[in-house]
Design a protein around this nucleic acid. Structure first.
Length: 304
DNA sequence: GGGCCCGCAGGG
DNA sequence: CCCTGCGGGCCC
């Protein structure tokens, strides 16, 4: 069964299961025993919270989840430090860096008001807000991942086609203001992942690749913005791989691109770099021109 | 109820 | 292929 991120069709939040085999057969969490599903490269698609590690803390919408590793294979006792490079831990780190949603399944266990009374229950999607090491109850280093529950509007995937045709009805409630973290989550489509992979997380403006414990971090920047009022498409030709600084510069017009992909400093008009390109990553200059126009237009007027 | 061991399936 | 893992059943 291929790994998939986000909700599983036919498995609404609140679905219950009698055993880990049933959870697996539903496609909600694939491993039969392990609590963390996923890989260091792709990220973690799901976890099971069932009291397997004493340092877990479950507050319902916030979960502090213990990573795996460091246990004796026979006794199950913690006998050494956990490593961030262990596959499940590195997977949760990657989900944090890429803003991927994690399915959370809770299993029945004592002393948790948030766990089901019996069996397992799918409790929806969470994001990995942060992680850090600490010495756990058993006296060894553990890695702890803080997950918070996502609201429905935070996990809508960008449409595959440009949404010009979509009718936006006037609604009484204004659209929710999304945090930076959630924007990243909503925007991290497979398109963005492709672009990041081509550039190996290296910023196309300055060349910086931010490195953390088990990999790199970069941001996917849409050249012509998604959604209102720009309606840019979520396609590779409309996405740049940038470091956070150059992402902010680009989104605020402090830098823009020429049609031959030179990077211009908007304040001085000076060319500061040639955009770093990759043969597989075609960039559509229509979007480049659209972005540039946003920051360079002025009202035409008759000069005396 | 706890200990133990037999497991499968996935990841490296 | 080898190793591991927030099962689970069975025995005492």
């Amino acid at each position: 069964m291929p790994r998939s991120f986000g909700h599983i069709a036919g498995q609404p939040v609140g679905s219950t299961y009698g055993s880990r085999k049933e959870v697996r057969d539903a496609g909600v969490h694939l491993p039969l025993i392990a609590g963390i599903s996923g890989t260091a490269a792709e990220g973690t698609d799901s976890i099971v919270v069932s009291g397997g590690y004493p340092d877990d803390e479950d507050y319902g919408d916030v979960i502090v989840y213990t990573g795996h590793g460091g246990r004796d294979a026979n006794t199950g006792k913690q006998i050494r430090d956990q490593e961030i490079s262990a596959p499940g831990n590195a997977g949760l780190l990657r989900s944090h860096l890429d803003g991927l949603p994690v399915r959370v399944v809770r299993g029945a266990h004592k002393d948790s008001p948030h766990a089901p009374n019996v069996g397992y229950r799918y409790d929806g999607l969470y994001q990995v807000d942060s992680y850090a090491a600490k010495v756990g109850i058993e006296g060894y280093r553990i890695w702890r991942f803080t997950l918070t529950k996502l609201k429905d509007e935070q996990i809508s995937t960008p449409p595959a086609v440009a949404p010009q045709a979509v009718v936006h009805p006037r609604v009484a409630n204004p659209a929710p203001v999304l945090t930076t973290t959630v924007q990243r989550l909503v925007r991290n489509s497979s398109v963005v992942q492709h672009v990041k992979a081509w550039h190996e997380h290296q910023c196309q403006v300055c060349g910086l690749a931010i490195q953390v414990a088990t990999g790199f971090y970069s941001e996917g920047a849409h050249i012509r913005g998604l959604g209102q009022p720009h309606h840019g498409p979520d396609v590779e030709e409309n996405v740049l791989c940038l470091c956070p600084n150059d992402h902010v510069r680009f989104d605020n017009g402090a830098i823009y691109l020429t049609d031959d992909l030179k990077v211009i400093d908007a304040l001085t008009g000076v060319t500061i770099a040639a955009l770093r390109v990759h043969p597989l990553h075609q960039i559509n200059v229509t979007y480049v021109a659209y972005h540039r126009a946003q920051w360079t237009v002025g009202t035409p007027r008759n000069e005396p």
